[in-house]
Design a binder for these strands. Structure first.
Lengths: 249, 249
DNA sequence: CGACGCTTTGAAGGCCCTCAAATCAGGTGG
DNA sequence: CCACCTGATTTGAGGGCCTTCAAAGCGTCG
């Protein structure tokens, strides 16, 4: 039933030299709240940022750290994890280039409420709080945009809450797979590959279930022909099938 | 086991005349992102707002409405409900005077993502989007504060997600009762009364469980002496007891 | 005081978790 | 290039927490 034995997920090496001024400006202009700024303004904004590389699995920051930096993902993928006292992890989000993180805590509590790990090798730009607040004061429209984006994130969190209380695991997994395909999908043959290492545990941690249950359900999806998958990768074969599951069959 | 037969929750009638200029300014100054403004500035800000009264149960806005207003609660209590397609309701939050709502959608999607109902008789001030955005542009520090508050709300939503995936219903209910007592508690005798109509269904909708389960568990709490409660009201008798439940006994 | 609606209680059943163990993919070192 | 090793995935069995459906108790309010 599996389409391949070896993972089709691409894993490009990131070279340090890629973070040239032009690349930095380009990535900054990808960030929703900087999108409308002129190149000149971006150059000023850019001076507040510094860039760092991380290798797969590295911790970018930990849940208990003091929140000092706002971060923007330039290359690669980052995962945000909430660790619970019981030792169960919650995968809050998988980020793609252009997304920012760590801001939450910057303005709210003094500590990060989640940990960030390099999901693949990646490059991250950081800015400290005073510099960022000063940007917000100089550019009120950046602040207004940021408010809108945070509002959307809150909306998404509420949807997650809704799904957790009203949907069963099967629906939640169908939902999360479709969402990931939307975000990280790359069309290969007649499939939409989620171009990212993605284990059963990752899916389980995103949907609040156990690895075993995630495995059982994804296997069922495979048998139904909705997806094909192997070790750490998933591709969607029938968007319609998953949508049907999501909506209650 | 019940302390009283009749509800001890206070239910003051709200008179229209209470919304005088002074009251309006006082309530505006309660709002976290307006707190630091001078009286003069507040007076300017106030001109953008208009006040409305609602009776218990009235809909202030509905989930499917176009999001046009930011609202601030002046008197009474408001509940935010997310309706799901299956007909199950989720009680997102209970608001007290000084809290704002409806903003989410104002900057994010075009529609409200939840409905707001008058939980008790209440008075609400509203401002439309252009007027509010103009305030944000004129007062960058208001915008920065708003960002911080939304960050905290997002943090709280994440905590809810964590609780839904890692805690059982008993813990979640203990948690929600303590939180409500913190927010709406008024000390009566040796108890801390949650001074708000609060049904078993409300508790169930806040914790994502069924009315029956909420009832069973709250009865157990009563038998343990942690709470006393009756029809639509709850008082905490042993904060320690509930805390112990919350942390896993 | 009578009806409505909130609350309580019981019973049956399902979903999902946990523990355990087998299977398999991919990388490593000889 | 092959055997081995590590870690991911699959599968099974048993059990617990909660849901759902029903029906009986009781406050409150008119």
């Amino acid at each position: 039933m599996k389409a391949r034995k070896t993972s089709p997920v691409s894993a490009p090496r990131i070279e340090t030299h890629q973070c040239s001024l032009d690349v930095r400006l380009e990535k900054l202009s990808l960030v929703p709240f900087f999108q409308h700024l002129s190149r000149k303004t971006l150059e000023t904004v850019n001076t507040g940022f510094s860039a760092h590389h991380f290798e797969q699995g590295d911790a970018i920051y930990q849940q208990w750290d003091r929140a000092v930096y706002l971060r923007i993902l330039v290359f690669g993928a980052v995962r945000l994890i909430h660790h619970t006292e019981e030792g169960k992890d919650i995968l809050l989000d998988l980020l793609q280039p252009g997304e920012y993180f760590g801001t939450l805590s910057l303005f709210g509590a003094g500590q990060y409420q989640e940990s960030a790990y390099a999901h693949t090798d990646c490059c991250v730009m950081t800015i400290d709080e005073p510099a960022f607040v000063s940007i917000l004061h100089d550019h009120a429209d950046v602040a207004v945009k940021l408010i809108g984006i945070n509002a959307k994130r809150l909306g998404r969190a509420r949807n997650t809450i809704r799904d957790l209380t009203t949907s069963n695991v099967e629906r939640r997994i169908a939902n999360v797979l479709l969402t990931l395909a939307e975000k990280f999908g790359s069309v290969k043959m007649d499939e939409s590959l989620i171009d990212l290492p993605l284990s059963r545990k990752d899916v389980a941690d995103m949907t609040g279930t156990s690895t075993e249950t995630a495995s059982r359900i994804m296997r069922r999806f495979q048998q139904e022909g909705y997806i094909s998958s192997g070790r750490q990768w998933v591709a969607i074969r029938s968007r319609e099938g998953l949508t049907a599951v999501m909506e209650g069959e």
